[in-house]
Design a protein around this nucleic acid. Structure first.
Lengths: 239, 239
DNA sequence: CGGCTACTTGAGTATTCTCAAATTGTGTGG
DNA sequence: CCACACAATTTGAGAATACTCAAGTAGCCG
């Protein structure tokens, strides 16, 4: 569980073009022509990067699931995001000398390293790429703001419902079942992200089960009543 | 209070180069050579833009103070930021056809419109500009994440303290007194931003006064014991 | 000077947290 | 393969923080 960071051991390995076409906020073939891509394999618990390490690359998640942890120097920390296939990671650290947060794998995962200087050069040559990067950054801001809104205005029950619906939608977009999935994160990480305590998350999930909205066994989730969840997450209590 | 939006009436008016040099995440002279800059004057309550309006420009705040309001379609809303001289506004909407949120002036303010297509073109020609824009976006992500951390891990008292310290630091950077300043926003907006109720903010400010950390009269704030505030807020000021 | 809004303060309530214990699942060494 | 230790999760009871509802005060604009 104590992770060697991902930088040291990696082999350059050009991935099939189809991958580049298929996935990602940035995933277009042109990148491959300009940027050497390294594949990083991580076990659960290993970090892709840590706050303070020199910033050198962005990463594109290809397999698995990772979390971002925001850290304060007084020891406070919070999970501010979960990342799956196609997500671009590291954008928050652009413009800095060192990464601003930790990114840690929740399970066996694979991320592609996109060294930043070559990427910048590529963006300069290919305006399309530049636009995609900028859009990815703006999209990240919007995602963060939507969660700020959610955490600031929703009850514990509503937050958990919203979280499950968000996972469902992301799974759907990746071609997986939006109704039945496995949580990649523990209650603790989920709680941290939702600004709750893990006991509260646990209780809340139990309550959603009581209400007949979901069924939960450990990390396995079934969304039984998606419409009901939506109603709950959207403001009105379910009676 | 019901605001005509800022788009209709504006006169092109080249601002002194010194302004461009002096202010802003993006404030460099090269911008002026490529991008026509329009000045928007707003009264308190008027909006710079509203969610749903076609996205056409970013804005650089020159005078005054504005707030960003995130909106949900079920009516929930939250203030997600306050913007002062030098802040770049609108970046969250890059890549969209329409703005994603409301930006409203809290007092008489002035913002410079940077039409986006010309700005993109300028960025293409001047890599320095591009880098600045990208850095500004990344910086926005970091600011949002730091506040997510604060809202997720701090008590009401700590949040208010952190908020005051943040204002103090921003004022200092603009050359104003970090110890004595006027709040540009009402308790309601402050509460919304901090994910609290306005009564709680009010009580909390009273408590900080009791503790001898600040003195508050309506919107006038004096930071009496900055070190004490820092200790309370958890050690470090939020940027 | 009214009438309004913004702000403050009080009292009781509710949601979420804290502390604690029980339960279940997981991995490891015998 | 089982027994055990350990980590993750669930559940309970009481406490605390922040909320709701309500009333009162203070500035502000016409």
């Amino acid at each position: 569980m104590n992770a060697a960071t991902a930088f040291a051991p990696t082999v350059p390995m050009p991935a099939p073009a189809s991958f580049f076409e298929a996935i990602g906020d940035i995933g277009i073939a042109q990148m491959r022509e300009h940027v050497p891509v390294l594949r990083h394999k991580l076990e659960g618990g290993e970090s892709l990067y840590r706050a303070g390490q020199p910033f050198r690359a962005l990463f594109l998640v290809n397999v698995g699931c990772l979390k971002t942890c925001e850290l304060a120097d007084d020891g406070r920390e919070q999970v501010t995001g979960f990342h799956m296939r196609g997500d671009l990671v590291g954008v928050e650290s652009i413009g800095l000398a060192a990464y601003a947060c930790d990114v840690v794998a929740l399970e066996s995962s694979e991320a592609w390293e996109l060294p930043y200087p070559p990427m910048l050069a590529a963006c300069r040559r290919v305006p399309e790429l530049q636009a995609r990067l900028t859009s990815a950054l703006a999209g990240e801001i919007r995602r963060d703001r939507l969660w700020m809104l959610a955490l600031g205005t929703l009850s514990a029950e509503q937050r958990v419902a919203a979280f499950l619906l968000d996972l469902a939608e992301r799974h759907a977009r990746l071609g997986f079942s939006p109704r039945h999935f496995i949580l990649r994160m523990g209650r603790l990480d989920m709680a941290s992200f939702l600004a709750l305590k893990h006991e509260t998350v646990s209780r809340t999930l139990s309550r959603l089960v009581e209400l007949g909205l979901v069924s939960v066994q450990r990390r396995e989730v079934n969304l039984v009543d998606v419409a009901g969840l939506r109603r709950l997450a959207g403001g009105e209590p379910v009676h």
